[in-house]
Write a protein that binds this DNA or RNA. Sequence first.
DNA 1: GCCAACGTTGGC
DNA 2: GCCAACGTTGGC
Length: 158
Amino acid sequence: MEPQIWLMKSEPEVYSIENLKRDKKTWWEGVRNYQARNFMTQKMKVGDLILFYHSNAEPSGVAGLARVCGEASPDKTQFDKASEYFDPKSTPQKPNWFCVQVKFEKVFPSFVPLTTLKTDPRLQELLVIKRGQRLSIQTVRLSEAQHICRLGGLEDLR
DNA sequence: GCCAACGTTGGC
DNA sequence: GCCAACGTTGGC
């Protein structure tokens, strides 16, 4: 089966693609939305490609590529009282929240700002440009991902 | 900083 | 189960 392609949002002030480049890989901790969690536990597979999106940024937009490198496992921040992601309802026996592991692939030679996504006629179905679309993990069509990569200065997805 | 949109919580 | 109140997201 073809690998699925995802768009994952992160606020660059919290964790940017440059942070991922430095770290090589990371657990995608802190997701506290059931739909996004279900994508990670039920749909995301090792090898899936990720468009790394900078949200709440100046400018917001797609900054580069990453890839799923570890399947969903319990998000350890839910058990950590000192963490802002602590969830008192979670126990190690019955965790509420999971996260996949993500590895760095590429920083786009040219950043693709949200304004470009919004005005491109080929990307009008892209979820991230829709008003009120807050989900932090979204699916992206192969044709859309390929087009975004070209806008970002890459020949293709690889 | 504002605020629209959306998700979650909790009283009933 | 309904829904008002509240909290969060995220563009602008």
